[in-house]
Design a protein around this nucleic acid. Structure first.
Lengths: 192, 192
DNA sequence: GAGTTCCTATGACGATCGTCATGGTCAATG
DNA sequence: CATTGACCATGACGATCGTCATAGGAACTC
């Protein structure tokens, strides 16, 4: 099914989008980074760059959701927040604050001519939110409150990574996660 | 000092960055949108696109800070959150979710070859945070807590605008602001 | 072995990018 | 009047963009 070079292209696209954004990443960059052959681009991705981006968004979304899910199964909602945040902490530091979230990059630059790109991004955000909300629900928090809290968590963490990139410092993320975990613990406590 | 056409270019750059991002906005787009003359680009901005972007970031940062400041002087910190959020609510809806924050766009795409661009973005974020924190401080909230809460507010609202663009809906922003105002009110209450 | 399908190599297409050089206009200054 | 400097018009530069056409090779079916 998915050829090796095809999957490498998707992964490289997601990787490069984090640093240079959608418009800033060319097909030639993806080829160079992935080592994939040039001639098969439009064989694997007949719809061109938008299709590659869409699959990169899906890949990144699934990847991170798996991490959140694993942490949620531990039982503690606050540790799920840690898993969600921990991944980006690592990405930020390892890249010296050059890399952020590829889905954010695509969303911010997405044109009108690619509506399914925004839809893929929205689906990824929703999946993260649902996974976090399910964890809160299992801890006894009411469904609608859990959904709102999970949404705040996704939004705040994504926003914090942007602040971190501007500041070249993880302090914003640490501040935000401290408040979020406080909030999560209080919600769980009130529910019991 | 600032010529008319020069200021128009800065404003247009900020406007266009919101929809198409930094890489996605060409000098030609800025010229066309602002009606400014092409020949004087490198007269006004000798350092090229990066300089234009830097001033656009400063302009947008100042503009929004003035709005927050005005709302803060009303005395109620929760209404300052409303002012901060209200501006983006309007931008999102009027643009049919095509436009977001220009500073976010620049931060997400900023290369290594423009370190002062990230610094300008960080300064804008910090100013917003300080203004919000001052409002909380005037309401009796302790300084460090006020700073953390203000930072969370900035991060969450910026993140929520991204979610709104992906979803083409203001619901994420409404959810986030509801939790934020709850949190703000509780902090003020606890401080008294 | 012939035919078919998947994948890749190579090179080019028109468009657009940021940048800049050159020559002009026009107001202010001496 | 002469000179200067701020500002604008035009056109081009090399590079890179996304896209695609053509052709070759590899593997599998009959």
């Amino acid at each position: 099914m998915g050829t090796d070079s095809r999957e490498r292209m998707v992964r490289s696209a997601a990787y490069l989008f984090r640093e240079r954004g959608y418009s800033g990443t060319g097909f030639r960059d993806v080829i160079a980074h992935s080592g994939a052959p040039r001639g098969s681009i439009y064989h694997h991705f007949p719809d061109g760059k938008a299709q590659l981006a869409e699959e990169a968004v899906r890949y990144a979304g699934d990847f991170l959701n798996a991490g959140i899910l694993a942490a949620t199964e531990g039982g503690d909602p606050a540790s799920a927040v840690d898993a969600f945040v921990g991944w980006w902490r690592q990405v930020l530091i390892k890249s010296e604050f050059r890399a952020g979230c590829p889905i954010v990059a695509v969303t911010v630059e997405c044109h009108d001519d690619a509506p399914q790109l925004a839809a893929a991004a929205a689906a990824a955000f929703d999946r993260w939110q649902d996974t976090l909300a399910t964890g809160l629900g299992n801890a006894g928090v009411a469904d609608d409150r859990a959904a709102r809290l999970a949404r705040l968590t996704v939004a705040a963490v994504e926003g914090a990574t942007i602040l971190c990139r501007a500041h070249r410092d993880v302090a914003p993320l640490d501040d935000v996660v401290a408040e979020l975990k406080d909030m999560t613990r209080r919600a769980v406590q009130e529910a019991q």
